[in-house]
């Protein structure tokens, strides 16, 4: 039994996510095995890279369906970076690609005049109370590395926003499903605190 399964679909190095979740007290397994994903108590979907590639890799292994099942079953789900973008209907990145469609909305290039990718520490402004941010002061800094941002159709899905020459959605939450644009595993003590919160309700 693995309480938390980090889905490995070949998009980036997952070692730091794994180490951070362990540090946060989680029992963790990195896997692309469908049985592991199905038997998980909680799912983490990380990833960096291109949206289209990522969807293709998820679909090829049947992981897209497994993720939807887990979310529908009410299991705690945390998306990180690309794992946030993939939840939406579609993305503009290098042509239009369909996403998992778990949340209504799109993924678009950051509409900013500042340098893209947006890399570094930036602040979040929480839009609602979340168990994920327990002990994390509003306005805290987290570490970002991305060029695209999600545009949810529903304001109620928005967990937090961030300012970078434009205001973009840096986190979403709906029921058991949460996802953030930043990297909690690279965001020092407060990132670990957020992961600890996730572990505590997983």
């Amino acid at each position: 039994m693995n309480s938390i399964v980090i889905i490995d679909y070949g998009m980036g190095n997952l070692r730091s996510v794994e180490k951070a979740l362990e540090k946060a007290g989680g029992k963790v397994k990195v896997s692309h095995d469908l049985d592991d994903v199905r038997s998980a108590e909680a799912i983490v979907l990380p990833g960096v890279g291109a949206f289209g590639d990522a969807m293709e890799r998820l679909t090829r292994r049947g992981l897209d369906a497994a993720i939807k099942e887990a979310v529908a079953a009410g299991k705690p789900f945390l998306g990180i970076c690309l794992g946030l973008a993939l939840l939406f209907d579609e993305s503009d990145e290098h042509g239009v690609h369909a996403g998992l469609g778990l949340l209504p909305g799109r993924v678009e290039l950051l509409p900013t005049r500042l340098k893209v990718p947006h890399i570094g520490w930036n602040r979040i402004s929480a839009q609602k109370d979340s168990r994920l941010f327990k002990g994390v002061p509003n306005g805290s800094y987290f570490y970002f590395v991305h060029s695209y941002a999600v545009v949810p159709r529903l304001d109620t899905d928005v967990l937090c926003r961030t300012e970078y020459g434009c205001e973009f959605v840096s986190g979403i939450e709906r029921g058991n499903m949460a996802a953030v644009q930043f990297h909690p595993e690279k965001s020092s003590a407060l990132g670990l605190r957020m992961l600890k919160n996730f572990v505590s309700f997983s």
């Binding site: 070692r15 730091s16 180490k19 570490y143 595993e185 690279k186 003590a189 990132g191 670990l192």
Partner: peptide, 8 residues
């Protein structure tokens, strides 16, 4: 470093 560092 990757084992124990939680910043980039």
């Amino acid at each position: 470093c990757a084992e124990e560092l939680f910043i980039p």
